[in-house]
Computed example of a mutant assay.
Amino acid sequence: MQKALFVCIFFVNICVAQIADFNHINFSKADDIAKSYRSKNLLNLNEITFNITKDLETDLEKLRAIYVWICNNIANDFGLYTKNKRKRERFQKDSIRLHEWNSEFKTLLFKRLLKKKKTICTGYAYLLKEMCKIVGIEAKIVNGFGRTSTVDFSTLTEANHSWNMVKIDEKWYVCDPTWATGISFPEEGRFDFQFNEGYFLTTPQLFFKNHFPMVKEFSLLKGKTPTLQEFIEMPLLYGEAYNFLESHISPNKMYQEIKQNDVFTFEYQLKKNIIINDLKLISSTGNNDRTLKPEINLQNKKLAITYQFKHKGFYDVHLYHQKKIIATYTFNVTD
């Protein structure tokens, strides 16, 4: 028991790391190789992995090539995701049928991944782990809760998302190849590849806003890891936030109850400086959207947006950058 505890503490102490550790690294060679290499299927994964990493020297570059290759070649299988969700809900109270379906689903999942290059989060995380293993990079699959605008936590009975931890230079990092790959349009039956740089070796504090691991140490956060309820109450961040933000400083919760004429400040640490006029703060009440006029201060990539809420009511407040949504908050402004 004491040995297990020691291992856990040691693990946490070496884990705190992020992409900022590698700001001096140029990934263009790894990216070019990964984007140019094509294969009809994944039946020879060793050959694919060797071909995209053989001319790269460091583990970091090899990891990058693997990650970018996955994100440019493996489509999201929204139909399989929907089928799995429907089956699990149907067999939720029938443990035998649920076990049978889980076994059938694993076979179906890997068959479609290998032959069709289509999968869901489990397949993405598995593929990254296996390709890393081929080149001697240690990686883990992390299971937990992924938070998006469409997730209803009141109906969730088990983890709904998977991502990865990878070890580079004796430090652990988090990444999400699923969400970095692109956008599904299930109503139209299509998937668009749109690589999101921000999910690669993300700052743990920012990554946690949308990723709650079942094993709390896998959050890589310094200090105490928030509870699941605290996670659910956090502000809602969108994919663009990961390209735009280094960290989300405040507020800590999505829902805010304030008094009329109170002044409220949103704070962020940016990855790079931006043009202030590219930012918009918009309030929404049903179908009525209104562009707010806050005070914006930007110094040393620290962004502070201050606004006085003069009107009573219940608002959704959205932060946009260049027409792309960053975050959503909810305000109840009372007397």
Rank of each mutant, 00 (worst) to 15 (best):
E130W: 01
N210T: 13
L43C: 14
N73C: 10
Q299L: 14
I96R: 00
I33C: 07
Y238A: 14
L43N: 15
S162T: 10
R112V: 07
N210C: 06
F193I: 07
Q308D: 14
R112F: 04
L108S: 12
C8E: 15
G286W: 02
N273F: 03
I70P: 05
R64I: 09
C121M: 02
R147G: 08
K85T: 13
L42N: 08
I9W: 03
L281W: 00
N273T: 10
T202I: 00
L98Y: 05
E295I: 15
N210H: 01
W69R: 02
H99E: 14
E138L: 02
E188T: 05
I14Q: 10
K35T: 14
F207Q: 00
I141S: 09
F207C: 06
T58Q: 00
V333R: 01
T150V: 13
C121T: 08
S103Q: 11
I14G: 05
M165I: 07
A20F: 01
K111H: 12
K133A: 14
H99A: 12
E233P: 03
H99C: 09
Q18K: 03
G313L: 02
N41A: 06
C8N: 13
L237H: 08
Q18R: 01
R38I: 11
F145P: 05
G198S: 05
I274V: 12
F212I: 06
E233Y: 01
I249T: 11
F153W: 04
H211D: 15
K140D: 13
C175D: 13
T82V: 05
E61T: 09
A125C: 02
Q92I: 13
P177E: 13
L80F: 05
L220A: 10
I305M: 04
L63A: 09
K35A: 14
I96G: 07
M214I: 15
K111E: 15
A159Y: 06
P235S: 11
T53C: 14
N76C: 13
L127V: 05
K216A: 12
